[in-house]
Design a protein around this nucleic acid. Structure first.
Length: 466
RNA sequence: GCCCCCAUCGUCUAGCGGUCAGGACGCGGCCCUCUCAAGGCUGAAACAGGGGUUCAAUUCCCCUUGGGGGCACCA
């Protein structure tokens, strides 16, 4: 075991890259980067019916957005079918596999009977020791592994520990379909062996498969990889994460305005821990990541916590980077900013990123910077601009106009004006804010007034003086 | 039905025989404050139940219950 670890993420391109897959990819990637090993990407497209090029793109894009770079080119499993077939033929020749002529209908009936009888639903090995006779001549057949029928198979798992399966529970799985194409079971094992994969880290939905794959590995005489099965992610209600919960694909998180760094940190903490640490930037994660601290139980998505983390990374991220994130986000919505809007955005970014939790929220809060002229009031701002407030606005406006148009000077003027008229600063500031931004909350008022400039600010304020 | 896995505050988790059961998100209160955030202080909130083992169980074992996964010529 002196060789560097080789890990892989092997999704099937039958849909988007979902959050659970993203986490599996992340864990594999982290371990590879932590150890200086290799992280491979293999597209398991042996199911020709369900695999689509769109899904392949979605997975590749999702991985790229998540910042999970793989080593070398992605391999496509279907392209390796001849090799898979070769292995199956070898097994057949060695007597470790056999042809089964049972039809699909026959097997379905068999399972039905087993179910009714309360017996485990397994292939009964009806062709295991039977020679094909004249009747089978030219009939379609599948190739099955002649699995061991006694004893037990133990999966040594780095997250779950040793898991033991009775071999009587494992049946003779299909290696080659009747059309000659390899099954997933055959393909993964052959590919992992050929690619030199040392660590198979995947979801617990594959735990049972591990036992069966172990038998195939043994029959092939290949090296046994280190297994690790990760608990699945459930929806906020604890039920299986499904389309019903929406927000399944990583792209959905991108569109909701979360940063890749946020997703990596969040997904890492969902099932992995390092004492009391919550904020774990990727560089730190690479340094710390190990298999020992992976939890065994399924976790649920918590959007509140995700929001909180995203807000944290907004505050941590440089303003220029955030401007780039915002413009990229807007570009995806086919929006572009004018030169002025962009300049304002850059200037206001330190204040904007301080109070938003998602890019969507940040952009909503920045809309008043993107266009010129009087604002349309939202409900809260409208409620704020009572006749009395408008009167305050009128006098405050004159006080402001009489001073230097800088943040500190404007604030001083407003404070002096408030004191002179015997009201609190808030009573002066809120009407101004409503007229200036069209909203009841915004980044610091005086900073925004200065940023928009005297002329533009006065146009907006005067619009709401009766 | 059969097999496998899991089980600490509402949620994510720390804990690896003796702890006032800790942290984070969320929630309540106070402070700060031009709004909204952020920040500081603070409060409520958990060992699923029952048996063992042990001087001592959240921690080890068994059962129950509850969740999850699997049982294809899908991956």
């Amino acid at each position: 075991m002196s060789e560097k670890p080789v890990l892989r993420f092997a999704p099937s391109p039958t849909g988007m890259l979902h959050i659970g897959g993203a986490r599996t990819a992340l864990f594999n990637w982290l371990y590879a980067r932590h150890t200086g090993g290799t992280f491979l990407l293999r597209i398991e497209d042996t199911d020709r019916e369900r695999s689509t090029p769109e899904a392949v793109d979605a997975i590749l894009n999702g991985m790229t957005w998540m910042g999970l770079d793989w080593d070398g080119d992605a391999t496509y499993q279907f392209a390796r079918a001849p090799r898979h077939r070769e292995v199956a033929e070898k097994l057949l020749a060695e007597g470790k596999a056999y042809r089964c002529y049972a039809t699909a209908e026959e097997l379905t009936a068999m399972r039905e009977e087993q179910k009714v009888a309360g017996k485990p639903m397994r292939y009964d090995g009806r062709w295991r020791d039977k020679q094909a006779g004249l009747a089978e001549e030219g009939k379609p057949s599948v190739v099955r592994l002649k699995a061991r029928q006694t004893g037990e198979t133990i999966v040594h798992d780095v997250v779950l520990g040793d898991v033991q399966f009775e071999n009587t529970q494992l049946d003779d799985m299909v290696l080659l379909r009747s059309d000659g194409t390899p099954t997933y079971m055959l393909a993964v094992v052959v590919d992992d062996a050929d690619m030199g994969v040392t660590h198979v880290i995947r979801g617990t939905d594959h735990l049972n498969n591990a036992a069966r794959q172990l038998q195939l590995i043994e029959a092939m005489g290949a090296a046994i990889p280190i297994y690790g099965h990760l608990p699945l992610i459930n929806g906020p209600d604890g039920a299986k994460l499904s389309k019903r919960h929406g927000a399944l694909a990583v792209e959905a998180y991108r569109d909701m305005g979360y940063l890749p760094e946020t997703m990596r940190n969040y997904l890492l903490r969902l099932g992995w821990s390092h004492g009391d640490d919550e904020i774990i930037p990727t560089a730190q994660a690479i340094e710390w990541f190990n298999f020992d601290s992976i939890g065994k139980s399924a976790a649920r998505m918590d959007y509140k916590k995700l929001d909180n983390l995203n807000g944290h990374y907004f505050r941590e991220t440089a303003g220029t980077t955030m401007v780039a994130e915002v413009t990229a986000f807007l570009a995806r919505e086919k929006r572009t900013l004018t030169m002025t809007a962009r300049q304002r955005l850059e200037m206001a970014m330190p204040s904007l990123k301080e109070r938003a939790k998602t890019l969507v929220e940040l952009i909503q809060g920045a809309e008043f910077l993107f266009t010129d002229g009087p604002r349309t009031l939202d409900a809260a701002a409208d409620k704020l601009l009572t006749p009395e407030a408008r009167a305050v606005l009128a006098t405050a406006l004159r006080a402001l106009d009489a001073t230097d148009w800088t943040g500190p000077a404007l604030e001083a003027a407003a404070r002096a004006h408030a004191e002179a008229t015997g009201v609190k600063l808030g009573q002066v500031a809120q009407p101004l804010r409503a007229a200036l931004t069209g909203k009841a909350s915004s980044p610091p008022l005086f900073e925004m007034l200065a940023l928009l400039g005297r002329e533009e600010s006065l146009i907006r304020l005067r619009a709401y003086v009766n």
